[in-house]
């Protein structure tokens, strides 16, 4: 017991995070052993001859909340892992500075021109099904909502995929969204707090469709050699989630931070991110396992980050009232 204790305190005292040249706030799973963090760190440190440190918080929203709490006294040079839905709220903290980069390498479908936030991966929300069970998947959101196929999705109050579906329904149905939610509620198995509860229930056969990402099938092929999980392409188009990085206004090393952002959108980093974060690369011509070429390539629909920030609470209320019927 005593030796455990002294080991513990010794380790505690040697962990220091403030000495790095570049400090990055991100979400925990990004820097887990199997996430992109460790590989990106090694690759970038080789090029820059510098020391980069990731600080992980629970999830994307927590990065924003931490910035809000710390204000000017934050330690970050960069934040990494805010999504486009939270972009405007992050900007209004006044803690972000323009990146000053040319973003012409980015895929045209992202249509990205923001002067402060740089995309490093993205994904389309999609409903995943098991092709051994379903031979003719639904081909549109409307068809799914009008069907009696069982569905599991995530709660928009507690998870980003849930908010994605909320925007998706709003984009397709507009004023009729409440009605659509009610119809969907009729064949919804359950609505979960987070992504994994829904996805693992689906893998256990609890529903025909689960809300996830268009890139989810890639994980099953690459990591498990299973090719029967597929994303259903919807004719109305899909809503995207774009994950972003940005330089803080208070950064002590904005030059190096800029180099890191540039590195993040380079072919080298973009080859690492999709196979560890299981999202899509933001530039073309990245060498990836063949399954990435077979993923669905949907048309992108949705709202601008400003519209989302503006109307999120109203949409949430609409969902809450309609789906609770």
């Amino acid at each position: 017991m005593r030796s455990l204790l002294s080991l513990f305190t010794a380790l505690l005292l040697t962990t220091s995070v403030s000495a790095a040249d570049l400090t990055v706030y991100t979400y925990d799973s990004f820097i887990s052993e199997w996430g992109p963090g460790p590989k990106l760190e090694a690759a970038f440190e080789r090029q820059c001859d510098c020391d980069i440190t990731f600080i992980g918080v629970e999830d994307g929203v927590s990065i924003l909340n931490r910035l809000r709490i710390e204000g000017d006294s934050n330690k970050a040079d960069l934040i990494l892992g805010i999504d486009d839905g939270l972009m405007e709220e992050t900007r209004t903290t006044g803690l972000i500075q323009p990146h000053g980069l040319k973003l012409d390498r980015l895929k045209p479908e992202l249509a990205w021109s923001d002067d402060s936030f740089v995309p490093f991966d993205y994904g389309y929300f999609a409903f995943i099904y098991d092709s051994r069970q379903i031979s003719k998947p639904v081909d549109s959101l409307q068809a799914l909502i009008d069907s009696d196929a069982t569905v599991i999705y995530q709660d928009p109050r507690t998870s980003t995929p849930g908010q994605g579906l909320m925007m998706w329904v709003k984009a397709v149905y507009g004023d009729q969204a409440a009605d659509a939610w009610q119809r969907l509620a009729g064949h919804t198995v359950t609505v979960t707090k987070g992504w994994w509860e829904a996805y693992s229930m689906f893998l256990q056969g609890s529903a025909d469709y689960v809300l996830s990402y268009s890139s989810s099938p890639a994980y099953h092929v690459v990591a498990e050699g299973k090719s029967h999980y597929k994303a259903a392409p919807f004719s109305e188009g899909h809503v995207a989630q774009i994950e972003l990085a940005a330089i803080t206004r208070t950064s002590g090393n904005p030059e190096l931070a800029r180099r890191f952002l540039e590195f993040l959108t380079s072919a080298e980093a973009q080859r690492l991110i999709p196979v560890s974060n299981w999202m899509l690369p933001v530039i073309d011509g990245v060498e990836l396992p063949p399954v990435f070429g077979e993923l669905i390539q949907p048309k992108r629909i949705g709202f601008s980050p400003a519209e989302v920030a503006d109307r999120r609470s109203q949409w949430l209320r609409e969902w809450r009232n309609a789906a609770a019927q």
Binding site: V191, E197, A323, A324
Partner: peptide, 17 residues
């Protein structure tokens, strides 16, 4: 988390949510 996961929809919302 359990209430949401097994509750079947937003009807099953607790104060904690």
């Amino acid at each position: 988390a359990v209430v949401l996961a097994l509750g079947g929809g937003p009807r099953a919302t607790t104060l904690e949510v």
